[in-house]
Write a protein that binds this DNA or RNA. Structure first.
Lengths: 191, 191
DNA sequence: ATCATTTTTTGATATACATCAAAAGTATTC
DNA sequence: GAATACTTTTGATGTATATCAAAAAATGAT
């Protein structure tokens, strides 16, 4: 039983039939291969994506020119560089697929006009932002502040039990903010 | 020239005269002394506060029973435990004044009914959430991931040049996620 | 299957920051 | 203004994790 775009939208907040129809009309169905860039740093994030299958990583390039992952989204997730999306300013991070993925996208401009047009859609978007952007990222801050590398790894495994088969050790280490050597040692139970 | 509540509200998104009036009617003006708790961990965050003067810290209690600051807001800022506020679930953090402060508050229930009642207010709230919650916290994640203690301290000083006179070294160190000894050494230029 | 490339593991050493202990400095109260 | 409590600084030592180097294992291409 596959998750439809309609399911995702309605699970956030129930929209009136008419509005839902109109909203659905603004989404585009997409399939991209592994390694494809949804967003490259420097460009404004013009879309909001609803992934139905696949995996992505978010990353920055730091001062020393090294990539640093900030986030993973696997399977059914909403994807965007929130900060760039809401301000329509150049993004500081890139978003790249780490698996062949399927998703639906809506453009920023279309979203804005729907927000102005339909009060119910504005309420829907408030729920989306509150639950998806805010809660997720607050968790992340708490993790970074309070958990050490090993605890953060265990929490990630808890959230995505199959992540080790889907994302490389180097990419996971980068997200955990540790080196891949350290993650390798944690896995081996040596730390 | 003092900043009024109306200024703050209108700077987020211009509301129609009538709606603005109604919205203003739901805010309460408050003055609290240093050390007062706006929110205690375990209680749901029932208010959104618009501070016009003063300073607050947000903090958790960690596993070892030690307080850990997660955030400061000084002067004109919007205050809430966002995560608890949006879900109306028990808060994991506390919010305490570190100076005598002045602010305006609106209750969660009042906000909800205004959101349902006025499309324009829903748009206003979207702007608020996007710009205040999301952007601030994304910066914070980037800081935690990419900057070392010294860089984070310099950035904080940049944002709040007078913070050293207003917030204790221990509180700042806690926010920076380092010990006060380390911060003391950074200040002394020994690190 | 073989070779080339990428990913993961292992080992030795270095470093940033924590921890513990105590002294010095600054506020607060009577 | 002395006494008391809080805050900040200094010193010595310990620990988690980084860095560098290289081997081993896994993956992909011909």
């Amino acid at each position: 039983m596959k998750i439809t775009l309609e399911d995702i939208i309605q699970s956030i907040y129930l929209l009136p039939e008419q509005v839902l129809k109109e909203v659905l009309g603004h989404f585009q169905h997409l399939e991209y291969p592994k390694n494809y860039f949804l967003l490259k740093a420097g460009k404004p994030c013009k879309h909001l994506w609803f992934m139905t299958k696949g995996a992505v990583r978010y990353f920055y390039i730091n001062d020393q020119g090294k990539e640093k992952n900030t986030w993973f989204s696997l399977d059914t997730q909403i994807i965007a560089d929130t900060s760039s999306f809401v301000k329509q300013e150049p993004s500081e991070e890139s978003i790249q697929l780490v698996e062949d993925s399927e998703m639906y996208s809506i453009e920023h401009a279309a979203l804005q006009s729907l927000l102005q047009k339909h009060h119910s859609f504005a309420i829907w978007y408030i729920k989306l932002v509150e639950l998806h952007y805010v809660s997720q990222i607050e968790d992340r801050v708490a993790d970074l502040q309070f958990l050490d590398a090993k605890q953060r790894y265990q929490k990630l495994l808890n959230q995505y039990p199959d992540i080790t088969n889907r994302v490389s050790l180097g990419n996971i280490a980068s997200y955990l903010n540790i080196t891949q050597e350290t993650l390798s040692r944690i896995r081996a139970g040596k730390l």
